[in-house]
Design a protein around this nucleic acid. Structure first.
Lengths: 334, 334
DNA sequence: TTCGGCGCTGCAATCGTTTGCACCGGAAGC
DNA sequence: GCTTCCGGTGCAAACGATTGCAGCGCCGAA
């Protein structure tokens, strides 16, 4: 009825007890006597009391929320990860704040500001392009890196990129390909680097050459994949198969390929990375390395909560497995 | 050096003034004398003081963040909208909390809880499937509906769905199609309904029949689009063109189409809705109705901030325009 | 009867800011 | 010289919860 929000005082008055008792009834019901507890609960019902999170958190010296810092929120790749995080966090009454690193002029500075601001109890970092120096903030909250990260000592949820690359190369080699190229992600990105290194390694392990001429530079985007198609078509000694550092690039590649009259897997076999939803619906459907994105989000959330609670995070497996999903974009070379 | 975070008291002591003066220096610099101001700023620098948002917000009786409530965070459609919101909000020092309506058992109840919890100063609602009754919370914060919404009196950012449908139909009819079908979104979704109604209306305006036989039910997902392909192929008297309530369904349709040996636009013209990124990279590239998603996010954020500030939101245009993007998936019927 | 212990409850300090109000000194007006 | 402002500052009360500590009543044991 009243415009003023109902406080713990109102409940206390209604129930005829002190605010302390109300507070305890709500947080540690076991310590308050049953009749009192019931009276308080009735008063809570009657008044429609909702705790004021700000006041509670101020007192408890925590914020009750965590930040997810992604390089580009518009990138659909993250939405599923965020969904996984959100599920875990909201079940534990934590809020999920999201922010974009790449908006202002200085991403590193933004990260530093978020860490220092005390706006959250912890932070999950998805941007593999930031400088580790930005983490050097005096009383900073726990940070989980949800991507391979230069600073190895940071608790992290990592995808086994090298293994993914090996799966791709082995699959293609198993089909009989010997000239397997790679389309890279952005040069500064740690994930992109790991996948490239994985490709190199897997090729070497198989005794296959991996010359720079079979390397096409991309930036994870569809457009860069389309560009790679033109460059691939124009190459003198072109690979019969390509491993892409991201599905999006592979998608762009496939589209551009068709437009120039070529076709996968007839003219070139294609393996992506991520298993984004569209893969299965393309034609040819895209063979790819599946990254369990929901799981990544969940793990990252668990790990962060563990760290916030003062744990070491030892109990949580940091490496998530990837797997090969074979579809129609790969076939033996003609 | 010290583990304890530095408070406004520390700054005051360092600068030799009262906390009140420090606070004023930081929020309303004009009211404090220049020398004092400088001394305070120097102390802030020296101590590395950061305001405690919790304390500030508790005192100011606001939370400094807003919630975006989406039906399914894993849906990439929202990520770009969120990016738009995030840009506007973070520029104004507001935080963006995100939450999923469809996770627990009772979505309406979740909405009600968020509204009552006082966790945010406002809320943007993206879920067209919730019940308006869930908004009936005593002292609830401002809510902006970022989708057409049953309760017409809610401030909202709307896309002109009917107009979008008309653009699609007119484009197809202009190419010479007379049998134009529609693949719908989920039956309970307001957006889906509006698009369907728009299709009906546009067909009627052109004097074209729009029998239920040309209507294929979907749920916005790629899978449902693929399913529509089978049903379309099996239909006795099938449309020569299809207007889809979402791009994702159109993508699924195109993939499945190829798999059954048919092809767009030769066998059927296809128009999607949304203009998701992949459209341009498919082959055939997908003709679609563009929804300016970043703009939607920005508008929603502006409107909400306006409402939070006590304004009426009159100044902000609630209807965002859509436009036809012609690509290769549409052509005259054979 | 006294006393220790225990289960429950209340008092009051505390979290870190903001802000209404009072105060103070100096300049200006009479 | 006495009031009247007025710019600038500090005091202290909020904001709404949590929680250490103390007190109270009651029960059982000595």
């Amino acid at each position: 009825m009243n415009g003023r929000p109902v406080t713990i005082q109102d409940v206390a008055r209604e129930a005829g007890v002190s605010t302390a008792t109300v507070s305890r009834t709500l947080s540690k019901p076991s310590v308050v006597a049953k009749p009192t507890r019931q009276a308080v609960l009735r008063a809570v019902q009657k008044t429609g009391y909702q705790v004021n999170h700000l006041a509670r958190n101020l007192r408890r010296q925590r914020t009750g929320s965590v930040i997810a810092l992604a390089p580009n929120l518009a990138n659909p790749f993250f939405s599923q990860i965020l969904a996984g995080m959100s599920a875990v966090l909201s079940a534990r009454n934590y809020g999920l704040l999201i922010a974009d690193t790449q908006m202002g002029p200085d991403p590193d500075e933004r990260l530093r500001r978020y860490l220092a601001s005390g706006m959250a109890d912890g932070l999950v970092l998805f941007d593999g392009g930031l400088s580790p120096a930005a983490l050097d903030v005096p009383g900073r909250p726990p940070v989980v890196a949800a991507c391979e990260w230069l600073a190895a000592d940071l608790p992290s949820i990592r995808v086994d990129n090298a293994h993914g690359a090996a799966l791709a190369v082995d699959h293609l080699a198993g089909l009989g390909h010997r000239r397997i190229g790679h389309v890279t992600g952005p040069r500064t990105n740690v994930l992109a680097r790991a996948r490239k290194a994985g490709w190199r390694e897997a090729m070497a392990r198989r005794g296959l050459p991996a010359p720079d001429a079979w390397l096409f530079e991309g930036d994870f985007s569809m457009d860069s994949g389309a560009l790679a198609a033109e460059r691939w078509a124009a190459a003198p000694d072109r690979p019969t198969a390509l491993f892409f550092a991201s599905d999006e690039m592979a998608v762009g590649f496939l589209g551009a390929l068709r437009r120039i009259g070529a076709q996968a897997p007839r003219d070139v076999s294609v393996v992506g990375f991520d298993n984004i939803e569209v893969c299965a619906h393309l034609s040819p459907a895209l063979t790819t390395i599946r990254q369990p994105r929901t799981l990544i989000g969940e793990r990252a959330a668990f790990l962060l909560l563990e760290l916030i609670a003062g744990g070491t995070g030892e109990g949580i497996e940091g490496l998530v497995e990837v797997e090969l999903v074979v579809r129609d974009s790969t076939a033996p070379p003609v």
